[in-house]
Design a binder for these strands. Structure first.
Lengths: 329, 329
DNA sequence: GGTTTGGCGTGAATCGTTTAACTCGGCGGA
DNA sequence: TCCGCCGAGTTAAACGATTCACGCCAAACC
């Protein structure tokens, strides 16, 4: 542990060849006479030599590693994006490094610096501060955003949140719901889009939208917001939550308060996280194609890196409504 | 994008000072005359200079970055570990890079190489192949494992799985369950420990243990294994699953098959993932202190890095039984 | 007034690789 | 026999930072 690890120079000395030879051997760039080949192979093994990646990428300028920055690993939406991106990267012999920015803690800057300095390109959640987005944009490395970013000249992969919300809205209206509420998370960029889509669908039916919000887009957030929404000025007969986690928290608390889901109140969310269909009742949601977003973002990043020029702009996925028991009637 | 990013040398030239001066300025190592200070500050801004982390750590030998390797971000157990580790790291001004090894896909080697080359120390799941563990052990960098590793001379943070399982077993026996089954995941190192603990508790009551296993430690794995366990040779009246995900998948399918949980069959898991208490019925589980494991592993890693010698060996957490409705009687 | 002293700045070595350019010997073809 | 070529192996210059050792000059001391 204390001793300096062996370098290519040590190997060269021990094997009686030059540094360049060892380097070429490691990278398999040339044929070697049997003697040299055997000596180098053995020396590397006995010395326990390990290539220093940093030194290599210093000179090559490339790392064959990519970065992904998300806001919260605990949110399955982000976990799915990691999965999608990771699989595509691995299939192309790239490694993926992930950082969790810890939503709203202002560690973004350090983390993004640390990450961006070690990779050839990045995929970043669009829900980072504006200054971080600018900073990333002139980093000199390709960056793909995912989420909802209204900005010129950036690459962005996203799912149409307006449409997702209006699909959900029409579904609820079609079920005969009359008092539809949106339980939003105002700090997210997606939020306004979802609220607008929902409002539109609700307005089509001549209804108005009740709005409320959570402090935190999590299970606990949904649970805590439940009673003030249910027993507020106007009692909704349908609640669309900012995401599935909030929906699940809300639904659970509603049930604990003796409210019947879906009879008294319908509940729906966004994302279609894996556990949604295992709830009782199974949760209606909109699949936002998280995993495919991750795949698409990575595919696009790899395309840019391999020189295929890509016009900047949005790449839009169609959301898919997943009607289940929590909104059935 | 195409132009080479400015280096410290460019800054020095443009500001009319030496490279060393710029370097010291960046690192705040010295006072400067007003003129120099102003020129350097401005030049850095107008050139958009960015420090090259790789070059820096080449010479300093440290990166102030740590790595964490997990098997599946989608599993909340791992997500919790990431959270715990990340928070402790951030609190100490270290950055954390995470890789998802994608369980059983043999990408471990590449990913671990990529990760280990960019960090000062690592935290790794003990559920990686033995060869990877050996490889990591003589990496020359501190490595902490988490999970269940029977091996000398390594640092490991874990929760007592034997005890966790026997707690669960006694709980079920105390509830009057007579035919207890274990739905395991044979590829995990934790598995044997859990099975043994459960077997012990069951044996104390003069009962024997039914065993079955899943192909995959996930929601789907639990769901798929359900019918063959329920309608196998011997029908259990209690099922302990390898983890909460499996338990939830199993429970859902059992309910779909018309089996009443917990009346006909009790269901329990391990980990106490956040969503467990939102299930219907709420899932009995054992809290394996995932987040605290992440924190402890990181704390220990930081201790080693800051020179506080640490004896290798296990650091053991006590599991906590969380009885809920899914096993009530 | 000469000699320390201390603060500001510089030159050059160094970290561990890759790679362009070169050397050197042997071999085949004319 | 001579020329040119090929291929194994070497030398040395990068890559972008940090840092040791030193130089210089003004102020401070005796």
């Amino acid at each position: 542990m204390t001793k300096r690890p062996p370098t290519i120079k040590d190997v060269a000395a021990a094997a009686g060849v030059s540094i360049a030879t060892v380097s070429k051997f490691i990278n398999g760039q040339q044929r070697f006479s049997p003697g040299v080949e055997a000596r180098v192979t053995e020396t590397i093994a006995t010395l326990g030599y390990r290539l220093n990646q940093q030194a290599r990428s210093m000179v090559t300028g490339r790392t064959r590693t990519l970065g992904l920055a998300i806001l919260d690993v605990r949110n399955p939406h982000f976990a799915n994006i990691v999965k999608g991106a990771n699989r595509v990267a691995l299939a192309h012999d790239y490694n993926l490094l992930v950082v969790d920015l810890e939503e709203q803690t202002s560690h973004e800057r350090h983390l993004l610096e640390a990450l961006s300095g070690r990779v050839d390109g990045l995929i970043v959640s669009s829900r980072v501060p504006d200054e971080a987005i600018s900073w990333l944009s002139d980093l000199g490395k390709p960056v793909i955003f995912f989420g909802n970013l209204q900005r010129e000249g950036v690459h962005c992969v996203r799912t149409d949140g307006h449409r997702a919300a209006s699909m959900l809205g029409r579904h609820l209206v079609g079920n005969g719901r009359k008092k539809i509420a949106y339980l939003g998370f105002t700090k997210a960029r997606w939020n306004a889009e979802r609220e607008a889509g929902l409002r539109e669908a609700v307005a089509e039916a001549g209804l108005s939208l009740i709005t409320h919000s959570v402090d935190w887009p999590t299970l606990d957030g949904g649970q805590q917001a439940c009673s003030s929404l249910l027993f507020g000025a106007e009692r909704p007969d349908a609640v669309v939550a900012y995401n599935d986690l909030v929906a699940i928290g809300f639904m659970h608390e509603a049930q604990a308060l003796g409210v019947n889901v879906p009879v008294d109140v319908a509940v729906a969310g966004f994302d279609d996280i894996p556990v949604a269909r295992f709830m009782q009742p199974a949760l209606t949601t909109v699949n936002m194609r998280s995993e495919e977003q991750g795949e698409a973002a990575m595919t696009r990043l790899l395309a840019i890196l391999s020189g295929k020029a890509e016009a900047s702009g949005d790449q839009l996925f169609e959301p898919r409504l997943v009607p289940r028991a929590s909104t059935a009637r």
